[in-house]
Design a protein around this nucleic acid. Structure first.
Lengths: 204, 204
DNA sequence: CTCGTCGTATGACATCTGTCATCCGGCAGT
DNA sequence: ACTGCCGGATGACAGATGTCATACGACGAG
């Protein structure tokens, strides 16, 4: 091994981030050279530190790990991307791969897989949970239009049609139409279930 | 230092759990002697390993960290309890303290606080984020009755009144009454918002 | 014993939500 | 040029939801 693998770690929960850093620190060939807590701090930190691999949590303020991955892929294509998430949602996997991720790990996988994944992506391999990959393929693509997603996202907190209409500059009837079509596409019975299953599939 | 502090670590996400173990492993005076991934495995593991401190994540299958804390407090009162959670919900803090927790940490606190908390609880101190403590006190107690909570919990996934009535062996009208009073108590405008704010406050 | 609260229930009413048909303008394929 | 889809809108209707008054038995506090 010529020199250590330089890793950027992006994860918003300090305790988890520093714990993961400690875990990776146990590996002789890996060095965590930068840590950030927000998605929008990833690119600047990556530029500053000349890293080999970026380890990105999806759920972060500022920008999601997937958005950060897309930016890194465009701006620093040599950097390998490992996306890490609590939720093994097939839609997340799909978006992550589209954003140029080289590996996709869920946090309830064994810890040993983390260092493994870092080494493998650097060797040019891709690391993906086969079960999840199958699920992502089986599920098909996101059937929702942009607007439908927007309305669903806005409806998540329990806003009424009137509030949604005001917030999105739409008529109340249009809001209901979008929700109605979304409900049908998702084969559920009301907006709450629609929001739920769309989230679950990673389609929001 | 007479001997090392023996810690049980309960957290369902392997990667996080093992990372936290690695973090604690860096401390000379602390030793993680047992790890479990489910709330209902806490007591047996604690019995087997003769531990000083239990570190309990709240969000776990089997039983929540708070439930596990209550059980440990009753069965092994000598064991100190550190409750750890992603969500700094005041209601969680309240329940954790009622369950006999000695420390309450949120995962986005600095990692150093974890080892600190372990040492402090062993020394008989209590460790609580002052901001969170203030919020818990300011918020007052949970105003919802048992049944209202049950119905709200059941309504979380978007079930209709008919489904809720069937699931809870109630009449449809009664379900609506409970939801109505819950909505009023929480000062919101529909069940979705009610579920949301109740969750947020840790009242479910 | 009485008062308040909880769990449960009903009926009536007003409003919100979900569905459907229908329409328009824009834009991408063929 | 035609077809189809998307974004946007309206109106009508049925069904779900939220509110309110009211009722009853159980139970704990006073």
């Amino acid at each position: 091994m010529s020199s250590t693998i330089k890793v950027l770690l992006a994860e918003d929960q300090s305790m988890v981030r520093e714990a993961l850093a400690a875990l990776l620190g146990l590996e002789d060939d890996i060095e965590v050279v930068a840590q950030v807590a927000r998605g929008d701090e990833v690119l600047p930190a990556a530029r500053e530190h000349d890293i080999d691999v970026a380890l990105l949590d999806i759920e972060m303020p500022g920008a999601t790990g997937i958005e950060a991955a897309a930016v890194l892929h465009r701006e620093l294509p040599a950097v390998k991307l490992v996306v890490l998430t609590t939720f093994g949602r097939p839609g997340y996997l799909r978006s992550a791969m589209e954003a140029g991720a080289d590996a996709f790990l869920v946090k309830d996988a064994p810890a040993a897989q983390l260092a493994e994944a870092v080494r493998k992506v650097l060797a040019g391999e891709r690391v993906i949970d086969p079960t999840l990959a199958a699920a992502a393929l089986a599920e098909g693509a996101n059937p929702l239009t942009d607007r439908e997603r927007e309305v669903l996202r806005a409806a998540e907190d329990g806003s009424t049609n009137a509030e949604l209409a005001a917030a999105l500059h739409l008529s109340q009837g249009t809001v209901r139409n979008y929700l109605s079509t979304a409900i049908q596409k998702l084969a559920v019975r009301n907006r709450a279930e629609a929001v739920r299953t769309a989230r679950e599939k990673g389609w929001l």
